[in-house]
Nucleic acid binder design. Structure first.
Lengths: 338, 338
DNA sequence: ATATATCACTAAATCGTTTTAGCTATTGAT
DNA sequence: ATCAATAGCTAAAACGATTTAGTGATATAT
């Protein structure tokens, strides 16, 4: 671990000033009318000495850190780790570094992390806002801090966002179930004010209403942090009392937990009840009755979020709200049994 | 986005020198014998003005970045994202920031990422080394760059590491299968020189030999980047020609892909063949025949890796190699049918 | 009364860059 | 021959923090 070579070291060797070395190595030799020979010698010496600029010094001088923050609810959740992978790859292409943090759906944590990341000098944030974070997000907006909301958004805050078209997602799924002949369709959602969930609920409700099935609308809301017990309870009631013939789960976690419950309850899919999930995974595909699900264009959601953020960082009035198209992956769990 | 307040701003307000402000805010008031009243005024003013130190400047001055790198094969792989979550949480407690990158099991990528991260000033690395990376790791060792190998290691390089006791893992699994009465047990592995895989293979082979079942040892190696076709081919042969009664998959990805293949082949588990996987997930649990698997103590592996790294950063001769105990989670897929 | 010690603080250097202003020597124009 | 312009470079300040050496004032010792 010998000392790193600095611009001064090169300057000494080539017998020029540090300033000149800096100019040459930043490709500004022409602009500053540096002699060709000298420039060449500087470049060669830098290469020979394996010079790599000290980014900390660069950052201090420029006031730029080339850092962005990605705040998700839980990086160990496959949905968000898939996003993180894409964001990280794209950011790297754009010469930015991503700092990742997890909030566990907790407001205090979110506030703390925004603080911590801003302290670390991030130039912008990609944020998955949790329940109750509207005030925080509003403050980011008012402070003109470059921010892009991911996956979730606030209709009343005019901030950039990269989200699914959530209304369309459940509309699509509900239409599919109706098309298969299911009528008594229940929905398992989170107990939350977050708009991506409310939109999904609306997409379902409106589609049911338009089909003249208002009487069969069942929405059950469960705790986001520990959904299992609530799901179990809801399913018992929906199946045994309401005799629903299909259940739609509004998120991957809800669906996965739902499958555990349905198994425990010995409910056969799709014979006893059809199932539609959200955001596919191996568990859905390998399930004895492969699970139909709404597929998010994760790659696009992720890529858009970082692209928008970087544009916003570079151009202070840039703004973009995208709502990406869902796709329905139809598998056995939602097909009418022949 | 008003200008951030600096130590100078505080100094001006309190009418003292920036040096004094720095001393006070770093808790060195006593050491430098600063007057109590002045110190109090500095602290209060700093709080009022919402002073937060510029970490870039701090880093430049101190030569420390409080940054560590975590290089995994793919952060979107749930195994590694689970690790990342824990590493990140722990690092945060220890006042370090984690930069995460993915290599896709590619040597060139790994070399590039080590370079990039070192350039970004990381003070140490947690590395999941890919096939062929022994030279790179050897260089890190020789350069005394603080490095901890995660999940995989090199027995010939005296570097810190945090890994599973891989030999014990397959010994455990094989013993279990033997105990259930299975004899003709096959193994699906990666085609690699990496020692964690070789150890797992040895654990299986030795256990089979010790049981006098050398004749029934079947090891099939498939491509790590696209395992599915190789797995399918191996399974066809093992089941149809070798008539194996159990298959052990050496990684989560192998097992998951294996389940897809076995489903396609209409093989019934455990009636036609028993299955043991690695690193449980929802897909295993929700499978029609819940899959027995070797469970790694992921939390410990992750926590140890970052703890060891930070100790190594702080104490240049610190070294620690831990091999953590696997646990076998027994489910239906490996039970002798009654 | 003088030297010494202690107290409470400041000036200035430093980390590695970048940039602005300025310097010197040569060339060109008149 | 003189002035201006240009080419090719350097000195120095700046980014925001930390630390070392040092300063002036007061208190204590001799």
């Amino acid at each position: 671990m010998g000392k790193r070579v600095s611009i001064k070291d090169i300057a000494k060797i080539v017998s020029v000033s540090p300033a000149l070395v800096s100019m040459v190595l930043n490709g500004k030799a022409e602009q500053y009318r540096i002699g060709e020979e000298v420039a060449k010698r500087v470049v060669e010496t830098a290469k020979e000495m394996h010079y790599a600029p000290n980014l900390v010094a660069k950052n201090l001088r420029s006031g730029k850190t080339q850092l962005v923050g990605l705040i998700v609810t839980d990086i160990s959740n496959p949905f968000y780790s898939a996003i993180a992978r894409i964001v990280e790859d794209r950011a790297s292409e754009l010469n930015y570094t991503v700092l990742i943090s997890s909030t566990d759906e907790n407001l205090k944590n979110t506030e703390r992390l925004v603080d911590v990341l801003q302290n670390k000098g991030v130039e912008g944030l990609i944020l998955v806002p949790c329940d109750g974070s509207m005030g925080l997000v509003q403050r980011l907006y008012e402070n003109h801090f470059p921010t892009v909301l991911l996956d979730r958004y606030f209709p009343d805050i005019d901030l950039s966002s990269s989200c699914l078209d959530n209304y369309r997602a459940t509309e699509l799924a509900t239409e599919h179930l109706l098309g298969q002949g299911y009528k008594n369709i229940a929905l398992i959602a989170y107990n939350t004010e977050m708009h991506h969930i409310l939109d999904r609920i609306s997409g379902y409700e409106d589609t049911m209403k338009n089909a003249g099935l208002s009487a069969y609308i069942h929405v059950r809301k469960v705790n986001i942090l520990n959904p299992r017990p609530g799901i179990r309870e809801a399913l018992e009631e929906l199946i045994n009392k309401e005799h629903v013939d299909a259940v739609m789960f509004l998120t991957n976690m809800l669906a996965t937990n739902g499958l555990y419950c349905l198994n425990e309850m010995n409910v056969k899919i799709p014979d006893d009840v059809a199932v539609v999930g959200f955001n596919g995974n191996d568990a859905f595909n390998l399930f004895y009755s492969p699970v139909t699900y709404v597929k998010q264009p994760i790659e696009q959601v992720a890529k858009q979020s970082i692209d928008i953020l970087i544009k916003r960082i570079k151009k202070s009035n840039y703004k973009s709200k995208v709502f990406l198209e869902p796709e329905l992956v139809i598998q056995q769990s939602s097909l009418r049994h022949a």
